[in-house]
Amino acid sequence: MGYKKIKKDQLKTLFNELSKDCSLFVPSGSKGYVGFDPWDGNSADFTEWYRNTTIPPKALFFPPVEAMLRFRKGEAGYEIEELLPNGRPQIVFGVRPCDARALKITDTLFSDTYRDPYYLTRRENATIVGLACNEPCDTCFCTSLDISPGESQDVDLLCSDIGDELLMEAVSDKGEDLLSKMSGLSEASGEEESKAKQLGDSAKEKITRQIDTSGLLDKMRSSFENREYWEDVSRKCMSCGICTYVCPTCHCFDICDENNKKDGKRVRNWDSCKFPLFTRMPMENPRHEKWRRIRQRYHHKFEYFQMNFETIACTGCGRCIRECPVNVDVTEIIGGIQAL
């Protein structure tokens, strides 16, 4: 199947149609920050203003807070009710290539050895419609991690913004299927295809920030014992955890019970390795010092995850750089390690 296209002023109609049979999520600023929100029937203009969301699409599959089960105590003791996602098909429209890669990365973790039914049920029911980047942020460095702003094999369907129209190309069978169900599309010309490619190339050139991943495993390894380095780079960190919150691959969580013993829910919440309580045990805390927690985070992303799953758990989305209140910059930290 070749490239299709749709006029941007037809998106609203398309979204209304798509949202009849499934849950459709699009970038929106309605909460005061940019995130993926359910389609509200109205705001299809995100292609005009949005570069990337503040909260990554992981939140749709691994919500910040989710009830896993309900327990109730009756005459016959406890009854457990499983609270799995409902399995309704979802379409997520406008996912950037970095975030699509991030989902593939968290897929490996949540399907490794033990299936995580909450995350995977949502993932299996989702179709990811990507949106290539024409204007990367100055914090972006995806190209250092084998990601291209203009293309993606990690989505089901990829859109490119060529001006008044969006070009669409199916990447997976799911994407092909979705494309065949969309009305209001027309065939794209070879010229338009080339334009999309040019825009992708030019976006690539606009990305100047980078990290050097060559030999990084060994460098990470040898930096481990360099306490001075880790103390130095962690000095200004406030342990607020926003870097882990907005990170598209951070997946650490806590499980706790809510309400009372008679009727309550077991809930999973995002947690963060930046918090001192994260690893606290009654008698000791292996990461009570901040520099140990910072070291854990970067070693996890750039070393341990790579050793265990053959990929670095960073996609260069730059959110942690943008959102950090004290300007901790992952590219500086990795650069510093490479320079040690």
Partner: peptide
């Protein structure tokens, strides 16, 4: 012994 939550290699601690 380490602090654990999930028990199955996902929660990260």
């Amino acid at each position: 012994e380490m602090k654990m939550k999930c028990g199955i290699g996902k929660c990260g601690r």
